[in-house]
Design a protein around this nucleic acid. Structure first.
Lengths: 208, 208
DNA sequence: CAGCGTATTGGGCGATTGGCCAATAGCCAA
DNA sequence: TTGGCTATTGGCCAATCGCCCAATACGCTG
């Protein structure tokens, strides 16, 4: 992973980023509660004592780590949407079977975060904020599509909420390996969107 | 909670049940990873040493505790449905705003379980099994309603999955206190069900 | 009542935790 | 080169964890 000799010294900002990246990886694998300072330090190739130099305490480190990823996901998706101007293509991005965010491991982190949010005000605040961002993102795509004449929609915010909920639920249950017909679940969000937005069935499946 | 003098001795089965109940309460409050043997013991009014007499180890205790609640929820819902014979009334039960299961705290436990399932094969197995039971339950109600002529439905299993997903997502995000318009989210599942099953809007809101 | 088996206690063990701190190492300005 | 500031180390601490076990209390059977 890292060249032994090159480990010596890093710019503080890089070091900080490396530690946060290590924390994210650990939390994704083990969950918030089971992630220890020493695990993070080992993964970041530093000693555990250094963590306290960059972060006041363990909770703050984990909270900042999740904050970092969550905001990054949002901004990445935002620029992904900016690349397409056509509403249908944008909606297709948002309903990708692996989730519009960072894919498999990103959802592992989110599942951990939902659980941890019940015990950490900082996590709860971040999850609430980012969830709202997701809803706004979907809602904006819908409303722009309606204005452009591509969609028809009675209750955009409600449709946005249902799309998000189905994507989350699909990703979560896929994580757990639960249940039959998991591939069908993946497309429920798209079929729901197609019906709610006046599109033909399968309109979101076709590749542009 | 418990009379001091009456603490002395309990039948083994009662004791076992009391410990499991204490474990459920602790996990609901603190999550799986942060629940310690001693916490459970204190809540159950026994010493920590006794736990090892009833359960081989900590993980097994927590897994059995969740297993107990999950199965109980399912069977309670089953008998709840048995009380009604009318499909619409049954569907109304299933889409209760607080979730068809045990209410608020029950969903706290489920959120913890979803996270923990990623780290515990036993939890993963239970969540998968009970999720399947929920889907079957909803699916049965739909199909009986279709046969009785009360519903019309193109893809029952897909509709069942969407209803479950929306209920889960609503309950979860309500837990987190996230987002505006959370009351509207609560009825998304009902509106979806009404449309998917050929019912009039609001048909599931009216009290029987 | 005597005796056996189980329920229950409470202490102890090794391992691990987050946080703290004195000491060291490396970088840059003067 | 020197001095000082920051990054970094590694050891230490009290607290706590799950687990184990010898000792005790209790209840039931004979």
């Amino acid at each position: 992973m890292a060249t032994l000799a090159a480990m010596a010294r890093m710019k503080p900002d890089e070091r900080r980023t490396a530690i946060i990246a290590a924390a994210v990886a650990e939390v994704t694998e083990r969950g918030f509660a089971r992630t220890t300072s020493r695990d993070v330090a080992r993964r970041a190739d530093v000693t555990h004592g250094l963590l306290h130099h960059y972060f006041p305490d363990h909770q703050t480190l984990l909270a900042q780590a999740f904050d970092h990823v969550a905001n990054e996901e949002i901004s990445e998706t935002r620029s992904l949407l900016a690349a397409d101007t056509e509403p249908i293509a944008q909606l297709r991005e948002l309903t990708e079977p692996y989730g519009p965010g960072g894919g498999e491991s990103a959802y592992r982190l989110w599942i951990e975060a939902w659980g941890e949010a019940a015990h950490s005000p900082a996590l709860r605040k971040t999850t609430a904020k980012v969830t709202k961002s997701w809803l706004d993102l979907i809602n904006t795509v819908i409303e722009r599509g309606v204005q452009a004449g591509a969609f028809t929609c009675e209750a955009p915010r409600q449709t946005a909420w249902m799309i998000l909920a189905l994507c989350d639920a699909y990703a979560m249950h896929r994580q757990l390996g639960s249940g039959p017909r998991i591939k069908e679940m993946a497309f429920s969000a798209r079929r729901l969107a197609e019906r709610d937005l006046g599109l033909a069935t399968g309109a979101l499946d076709r590749t542009a």
